[in-house]
């Protein structure tokens, strides 16, 4: 046991032998430490869950009756021979990087992260470590995000134009994270903000935790679509173009994702507009995060893994690709994920 690595990559997921626990496992195990509530990280079927206090309510909402315990950012917990703590990952509210220390050696599993402050999630804080497990969803130098205020101005300008032309603006967004971030970016002076049920369910949980979100109106079946002129509607991508959305009459649809940076992808989505905004780190963000950890060994879990790890190796790190079932930002995930 003494020579076992702090964390290893098994068929069940990322495993800590010293503490006998898994991080974001994809098969049922006894003890699971969860970085955040997205469905590719927080899965059903674990005997015990440990996640941040902020992440837990959404997990309970999605996974139902689970045995789970909460932990605060920075709080140190001993599990077996491992010392464990959770640190903000800036991805979505409650998301964490998990620091694991065994006999003075420190590993950090970062789950999904972004380094810019979105004004909603606790901002990413770098954690020094020897080995760093990173995603690389947008690990190519073509991905460079504009700052949030610039994108907010673009979205609001589009919304205002829709309103001026008598059209309802439909903005596609995932229910957890992206939707709430977009909400904080909207200018309520333009018109009312309507939300699809899947998104409003998550909003309620987030609001209950004392996180402020702008006022929204639930756009369920009882709502008269014509009763809210100048509205913007936030809905999961799958609801765009559905019978429900058609009830709103003349409309434009937009989609907000890091993938919208690529013209080809933008054109493949048949929507009217694509806004480039992501809850994952861009190229510069990934590189700065890795630099700030001071880690020498980098494990790349999902995204453009081969290219990204080759670049890290070329640049003086020891990097390798580890196969996982994490998906990063996919264009197909649904509001019910």
């Amino acid at each position: 046991m003494t020579n076992a690595p702090v964390l290893s990559f098994t068929e069940n997921g990322i495993y800590c032998a010293a503490g006998d626990f898994y991080i974001d496992p994809w098969r049922p195990v006894d003890r699971a430490l969860i970085t955040h509530g997205h469905s590719d990280h927080a899965r059903w079927g674990m005997q015990r869950y440990l996640a941040t206090h902020i992440a837990l309510p959404v997990m309970r909402h999605r996974l139902g009756d689970i045995t789970a315990e909460g932990i605060g950012y920075g709080e140190i917990r001993r599990i077996g021979d491992a010392k464990v703590s959770f640190h903000p990952a800036g991805h979505v509210p409650g998301s964490a990087q998990i620091r694991v220390e065994v006999k003075g050696e420190v590993w950090v599993a970062s789950g999904d992260y972004k380094v810019v402050d979105d004004g909603l999630s606790d901002p990413f804080s770098p954690v020094e470590c020897h080995s760093f497990i990173t995603e690389s969803t947008f690990g190519l130098p073509v991905f460079n995000w504009a700052d949030q205020t610039t994108v907010a101005a673009e979205i609001n300008a589009w919304w205002a134009t829709c309103a001026a032309n008598g059209k309802t603006a439909f903005l596609g967004a995932y229910a957890l994270g992206k939707a709430q971030r977009l909400l904080t970016m909207l200018d309520p002076a333009i018109g009312p903000i309507l939300t699809h049920t899947a998104i409003e369910n998550t909003n309620r949980i987030i609001r209950d935790q004392g996180i402020a979100l702008p006022d929204t109106i639930l756009a369920n079946a009882e709502l008269d679509p014509k009763s809210h002129p100048n509205a913007i509607v936030l809905a999961p991508p799958s609801a765009l173009g559905s019978a429900w959305s058609k009830g709103f009459g003349a409309q434009e649809t937009a989609f907000a994702s890091g993938w919208m940076a690529i013209r080809g992808v933008r054109r493949r989505r048949v929507g009217d507009r694509g806004f480039v905004i992501s809850d994952h780190a861009d190229w510069g963000g990934l590189m700065s995060a890795i630099r700030e950890t001071g880690a020498e060994n980098i494990y790349v879990t999902h995204g453009y893994t081969e290219v990204f790890s080759r670049y890290l190796n070329d640049s003086g790190w020891t990097a390798q690709v580890v196969p996982t079932q994490f998906e990063g930002e996919s264009l197909d995930k649904d509001g019910t994920e």
């Binding site: 190519l140 130098p141 073509v142 290219v307």
Partner: peptide
């Protein structure tokens, strides 16, 4: 400020040379 091979990898994914160049250059 990137190696040529990384530019080429990016190009193969973006699929358009003019766009790849526009994206990798500083904003």
């Amino acid at each position: 400020g990137i190696p040529l091979w990384l530019f080429e990898e990016s190009y193969s994914i973006v699929g358009d040379l003019a766009e790849t160049i526009a994206l990798v250059l500083p904003a």
